[in-house]
Design a binder for these strands. Structure first.
Lengths: 140, 140
DNA sequence: CGGCATCCTGACCGATACTG
DNA sequence: CAGTATCGGTCAGGATGCCG
């Protein structure tokens, strides 16, 4: 069981003003947030959090992901050192994917965010309904 | 001081296999992750976490954000109920932005993720260097 | 001051076909 | 089985100009 215990003031305190473009682009948090924000990465990480799985297992587990995106997602995660890829010289070839130790440490933060999303989904949905009613045709 | 204390097994346990396309698209976590993953939302939320700020203050604080994206980011956050917008009928008009109570509860999870990113930035950088050396020309 | 309208570029992502 | 190659669509995001 992993737990996280975070003091928010740590982050706000570290942030100096103004935030230049280079600071933002070079910020490791920006980097990670973009990876986490792409369509499949978090889902793959969470699935691999249950244990090592083969390419085909992931492909079937996520039903509608394209092979292109599954491969791209796994390559990116592998490049960042979050996922390790193991091949066995069988015929045909067998490939297993699993989380690295670094990848496992990511489970805590992304679970915190996911659980926040689940916990507050109705608040968000309600807020959107109000906004869309008060601002017809705006945004969207 | 906000703190979060998360049991990762909560998330993995809730996830059933296989994950259909509709389940993934309708998942509130997917939704939040995409908003968090866009280029400016988290930065704006963190800045507003320090207190109410005017449009121009945010614009100068983030130096190189375009007005278009600042407005879009604020609108999206407002629509989701994370940010509140207050206008004062001065001449010219004054507009203040601040976090809602819901928005403040998001500071915990995104700080957890950001601090993870900062803590492991060197691991990630090193992993990328190894990957890029072993797979020249692949990905990127 | 605090936007909105418009145009443009490059990601991200999906569909399809092919392969060691 | 586990990918690669190619094409095309959609959309985030930047630049510029105008406005109440």
């Amino acid at each position: 069981m992993f737990t996280t215990n975070i003091d928010v003031s740590d982050l706000a305190g570290k942030l100096a003003l103004p935030v230049t473009g280079k600071e933002h682009d070079a910020c490791p948090a920006t980097d990670v947030l973009r990876r986490v924000g792409d369509k499949w990465s978090v889902l793959v990480v969470v699935l691999l959090g249950r244990g090592v799985q083969r390419y085909g297992e992931l492909d079937r587990a996520i039903e509608n992901i394209s092979q292109r995106m599954l491969t791209r997602t796994l390559r990116n995660l592998e490049r960042d050192g979050l996922v390790h890829r193991t091949t066995y010289p069988t015929v045909p070839v067998t490939v297993e994917y699993g989380l690295t130790l670094l990848g496992e440490t990511l489970l805590g933060p992304i679970s915190a965010l996911s659980l926040w999303a689940v916990a507050h989904q109705h608040d968000i949905e309600a807020a959107r309904a109000v906004f869309d009613k008060q601002n017809p045709g705006k945004l969207m």
